[in-house]
Amino acid sequence: MAASLISISLGAILINNFIFSQFLGICPFLGCSGKVDTAVGMGIAVTFVMGLASAICYVVNIILVAYGLEYMATIAFILVIAGLVQFVEMFLKKTIPALYTALGIFLPLITTNCAVLGVVLLNVQNNYNFIESFVYGITGGLGFMLAIVLFATVRERVEFAEYPKSFEGFPIALVTAGLLSLAFMGFSGMKIFG
């Protein structure tokens, strides 16, 4: 059990990183990586939502399967996620208003972050049990956070670099992300515990 959990965690953080090898959650990754502080805040919020969504959707999926309603899975999951994000939004507004303002429009947009719905769907696809789903959600979120924080630090330096005018903004950001993804490719193919 412990071995499979460790292999799931390392897989989600490094080997199959949500951003760099599965392309899930690119919008907030590009939109919220201007400053390291915002990136950390976004990472924590996404990790929280991903962990909770994995746990709750596991239960929801059991109910759906029991009633033979598997085809409703996508609709049910997205509603659970939308509710959770609303909850996180209210929570942050009350407790950490500074972070709430910094995240701005990207906070409600966590609902439409493909990483969150993606992790839930992958849990079902991989037949993970409750604990495995939860761990995959949390570590997937941590992998997202690692990616976005690394990217934000690099991006702060890129601002001072010289590059062709056409590459300003999104293009140079994508090329930078590509190079980071190249670095993460070094982990691919690694097998832990067989």
Partner: peptide, 20 residues
């Protein structure tokens, strides 16, 4: 994945160039 990021980056750069 690397190719995906860089190809799209170049496509965006081309668009920027044409827009400019």
């Amino acid at each position: 994945p690397v190719g995906g990021f860089i190809t799209l980056g170049c496509l965006f750069a081309l668009t920027n160039y044409l827009v400019n």
